[in-house]
Amino acid sequence: MSRPPGPPSDRRPGDPEAEEPAPIADMRKEFARKSSREPRDREAERAFLKNKIEILRSDRKLSESEKEEAVAALLRELDRLEEEDPDGRS
């Protein structure tokens, strides 16, 4: 188990603090608490997935078979979302 080393500092070379890895504070609880107050926006969730599908379909570097496979996976995600909220009311 090994987390990646921290990104390099943007401080100038020669600055002794530039070589020191920046500390990491665990703020997960605080962010989870702030997030949990927000109501779920299913319209935004649907838009997120639909937009990814459009980006995928218009990707000129992918073959049709690659697109089909990836679109199918995204459509499954979208279907699951629809099942959770079939009327799209929330």
Binding site: G6, A22, P23, I24, A25, D26, M27, R28, F31, L56, D59, L62, E66, K67, E69, A70, A73
Partner: peptide, 29 residues
């Protein structure tokens, strides 16, 4: 996130899950 005020990184989210390398390197996502 880089906490500019505190000059540190703040871990804001973490999740462990089962996956194979092919799940990570394959596909478009």
């Amino acid at each position: 996130l880089w906490n500019q005020a505190a000059q540190r990184y703040d871990l804001i989210y973490q999740y462990d899950y089962a996956a194979a390398l092919a799940d990570q390197t394959g596909g478009w996502i």
